[in-house]
Nucleic acid binder design. Structure first.
Lengths: 211, 211
DNA sequence: TTTTCCCTACTGGTTTTCCTGTATATTGAT
DNA sequence: ATCAATATACAGGAAAACCAGTAGGGAAAA
């Protein structure tokens, strides 16, 4: 019994990755690459008028952030299975993507076999996460909550100023507020990020992409 | 007049990138992919016994750092043209690679055309840097010296401990040395990285990939 | 062998950060 | 209109960081 092939859209701004994906999938007759795009907007306009089963979505697109792309895609066609793709394994991003509704996530060191597994499983309505991704998620659950704490606008601003090496007084002058206020913000920042001082504040801020 | 094809070695730990490169190069008869490897050590042992014209070298290998790979390759066969490949455009790394002797550098968003250009040019003994890479290099020259300052082993170690939020006393205890010594190291670090305090120290350390 | 670099350590002082707790005006959302 | 979140501000004190300069011993390089 022949199934009709699973229709795939590839979204990645690297020609060589697109070619690689095509090659890895070309042997398998269960899948059919229907189209490919190198940015987010083209993908979305295409999907307005055409359907697909699976979107293989690179996280680092030139125009639209991968995390933002997911809901946009699902908004247009809720029955599409989105599989995230990225080179590096950053727990916070993976977590965000899952929250936004991806059904699968793969690192770019996948083999063709894994890729096909992911696609077929997601097409059947299941989730699929590569073994490495699973390990990362497991670590991130046990070790610490990798959610981005919500920082206010002001806090983010002050955070960047701290990172620039400015002292409380410098910052206060720059923002025309009391040094005491700046101190309060700094304290709140350290509390939110659960660190004991400014140095590690900057470190986790960078890790969590807040800077 | 037919030239004999340029012999290429691909080194990248992502199967899909390898496949992509192969596809992008498969049309062109001037080049011939001789072999491919997914890590540094295999590449080096292969080159001990076999030659090649060009090595396409990914910067992020699982075992050996790309920057360290270049001299190792050139040490085995000085006449090989090494072309660096990476996803992201980090001036300091590109600079380091050039110092180590790469003849070309490309971002992974290259087109097949550019790729072939790079290979043929490098094979003729010229340099080739993608347009984006050139822009990055130009910026890095004008804006600031993106060289990594030379930190000693001890300094690097202490730097990471500072980033973890440890105080001078904590670090001193951990390393069984005087807090005063740790302070000295910290001061030297700040001086070398030209920053006024620990917070910005961590920031530039992250930027310069020292952490 | 001399020189240079690295790690170590100190004095003595100033500035900044960090802690704990409190409090009010403003803004935004329900 | 009211409640929650945000930005603002303060006090008082302990801890840590930062500044400037100096210096010895050991290892490695010239």
């Amino acid at each position: 019994m022949q199934h009709k092939p699973i229709h795939i859209i590839i979204v990645d701004d690297h020609p060589m990755v697109i070619e690689g994906l095509k090659t890895l999938l070309s042997d398998d007759k269960r899948v059919l690459i229907k189209n490919q795009f190198m940015n987010g907007t083209d993908t979305l306009t295409y999907l307005e008028h055409n359907s697909a089963d699976i979107v293989l979505l690179d996280v680092n697109l030139p125009d639209i952030n991968g995390v933002e792309m997911v809901p946009k895609i699902l908004n247009i066609r809720a029955n599409i299975g989105v599989i995230g793709l990225s080179t590096y394994s950053e727990p916070s991003i993976i977590n965000q993507m899952i929250k936004k509704g991806v059904k699968g996530y793969l690192l770019k060191n996948v083999t063709g076999e894994e890729l096909v597994n992911a696609i077929t499983q997601v097409h059947q309505g299941d989730f699929y996460f590569g073994s490495e991704v699973q390990k990362i998620l497991a670590d991130s659950v046990t070790q610490e909550s990798n959610d981005q704490p919500k920082l206010t606008r002001r806090e983010k601003h002050i955070l960047t100023l701290i990172a620039e090496g400015k002292t409380t007084n410098n910052i206060a002058e720059e923002l025309f507020i009391s040094p005491l206020t700046v101190e309060t913000h700094r304290r709140n920042l350290m509390q939110k990020l659960e660190v004991p001082n400014a140095a590690s504040l900057i470190k986790v801020a960078v890790e969590k992409h807040l800077i």
